[in-house]
Amino acid sequence: MKRSWYATPYALWMLLFAVVPLLFVCWYAFTTPEGAFTLSNFQEFVKPRYLGVIVRSLKLAVYCTVLCLLIGYPTAYFLAGRDFNHAQSLVVLILLPMWMNLLLRTYAMMTLLDDNGVLNAALTALGLGKITVIGTEGAVVLGLVYNYLPFMVLPIYTVLKKMDYSVIEAAEDLGCNPIRVITRVVIPMSVPGIVSGITMVFMPAVTSFAISTLLSNGKIRLAGDLIDYIFNQSSNPTRWNIGSSFSLIMLVLILISIGFLRKVDPDNEGGGMW
């Protein structure tokens, strides 16, 4: 038996649950409910309300990705340090929230950030005023960061861990100050991890749904919520066709961003998790 045959279960799985559904999506996106070919489903999204949703999704996903990078990179750098022995257990701690379902985590966020929640109780106890978090774009970004931060930390950690420490010593020997060591040596060498992290965070963030609705009391909806609404609640007879065309548009947006990032990291050093 050839070795490649061992991949048959996976190939079958992908065929049934990824390729076939994708073909359905394509079919619906380019047809009318009667089955005739059309491009009109795509024209729908020139309407300002849909463009507005896409722009809002992209904006919040960018905020989320930048925040994840700002928090995640120092974390990964710290964990990968040579003189730190407890990295493994801390990595487990970072992974821990991911053992729980995303929706449950978001409900937990709601309870924490609520007007009468833990955060405001703490602020009141400290003699500070209450703040309203739920219902703002900030709450949605916070929810996204909370859910996707591990995807930023892990690839950067992996790359930094593999890095040859003698390179840093060489830089120091040649007179680099600590800041220049980081900006000229460590960061350039960890680019593959950064690229991988950005992709892993940006992609699910831009297509996320439910998180935004829950943390904004239904006021702020993203592209994923729109697709969900079109498929599940809309009474429009062309809802499957319009929903499919919108899904395809999102897919193309993601493919473009992957293609762009491939250019930056052609050898997939960041773990190739995508």
Binding site: R49, D225, S234, S235
Partner: peptide, 19 residues
Amino acid sequence: ISTFENGWLYDDIWMDVLM
């Protein structure tokens, strides 16, 4: 409203409000 002439507007309006 599914058989109304302008029934589709209900959905259209609601999407405008939500999104």
